[in-house]
Amino acid sequence: MPYTITNFCIIRNNKAQAGSLSYSDTSVAGHEFLIKAYQHFGISYPKFYKMDNLSRLGFLSVELLLKNHPVHQLYKPEDVGIILSNASSSLSTDIIHQRSISNRSEYFPSPSVFVYTLPNVMIGEICIRHKFSGEGCFFIHERFNAAFLHQYVKLLLDNRIIQCSITGWVEMNEQNYESVVYLIEKQSQTNNQIVNFEPGELNKIYLKDS
């Protein structure tokens, strides 16, 4: 059975876009944009402020991806799989934790920083928010790897391990951030424009206005 990309969300260069949702603000510095976007879309989830920048980016991407999409009604929580990837793992937060311990007279490691020194904690945050309990995995790739993500998500769907997948790239480093996240389903439920789930299509979307 062919699978389709039923929605996608792109957040980079101080711009967030998913379907008809769009917001941009170039007046703020890089990571500040995530807070601005959170406020702009009227999301109410105070825990957002407790997250590190990587989790904020992933959380926000999925928030916009699912805002006008009935994933929660269509699938059981255990049938939604979250397969994400990036290049820098949790490096931006690793550096913050390292700073807090590099000087013995100022040695104050923080549990709320340390917990985010694992990239898959972002998947945990998304699962808590949306009550998803299915397959999850975080992969590290040097660049966005459409071929692998396609291969692995297709395998999960083919084997009926999951019915629907949130997959893509959520990258955060000290200088920059970039997220392109896709919703993959067995057939289009809400969208008239069918985009086949193929590596070429994933790449085409990834390269959009970049």
Partner: peptide, 27 residues
């Protein structure tokens, strides 16, 4: 060298692998 994709690349070269190693980092 701190990046895990770099470790993957280094292992590919060291062992002369055909494919780039896949890196799983899930706590």
């Amino acid at each position: 060298r701190t990046s895990l994709w770099h470790t993957a690349r280094l292992m590919k070269e060291y062992f002369s692998l055909y494919h780039m190693p896949l890196v799983v980092s899930n706590a």
